[in-house]
């Protein structure tokens, strides 16, 4: 992982603070999240204390600081989905994985989040897993989807 970050940092001149956000984005893409180690390496590279890097990064919701799950389930909680029962979908998932929204399963495979609107109101309720959309959800269908995810791991 350190090598990966080093390669990213090498692309940018030292002590150039204007690149911080760009580098953070690249680190997140490579690592999946912003680790403590990457903050230290970045802070040394650009010559800014780690607290200032974290301050900037934590300003943006896009950056996360903990390892993420293999499958990030984003349930739409927009108005249309809400009317079609997105809250039952959420509580179904919470029960299924025994975690709450925002949390991650112990085996780091699933994580549930909500999104304000995924823009597919006609097919509500919808959810998105790692970029793939699933619509007209029912608990049965969700069970199927989860099964698909699990079997794709093997």
């Amino acid at each position: 992982m350190d090598n990966l970050i080093e390669l990213i940092l090498l692309k940018y001149p030292k002590n150039a603070t204007e690149n911080i956000i760009e580098i953070l984005l690249q680190i997140q893409e490579a690592e999946g999240f912003i680790s403590a180690q990457s903050i230290i390496m970045l802070s040394e590279h650009v010559g800014v204390q780690s607290s200032k890097i974290y301050s900037v990064a934590s300003f943006y919701d896009q950056f996360v600081f903990e390892a993420r799950a293999k499958f990030i389930i984003r349930v739409c909680s927009g108005t249309s989905c809400y009317i079609s029962g997105s809250d039952t979908i959420i509580s179904f998932l919470e029960k299924e994985f025994n975690i709450r929204i925002g949390e991650i399963t112990r085996d780091h495979v699933f994580q549930i989040e909500t999104k304000s609107c995924l823009g597919a109101c006609a097919q509500s309720p919808v959810l998105e897993i790692n970029g793939v959309f699933y619509s007209n959800l029912t608990p049965q269908r969700i069970r199927q989807i989860i099964h698909q995810c699990k079997s794709s791991l093997q």
Partner: peptide
């Protein structure tokens, strides 16, 4: 930051969820 040049503390997040804390 300015006097001690240690910068142990920083603002975290933004808006109404802003807090003062340390790195991570």
């Amino acid at each position: 930051d300015e006097v001690q040049d240690v910068s142990a503390l920083c603002f975290i997040k933004k808006g109404s969820s802003t807090t003062v804390g340390t790195t991570l």
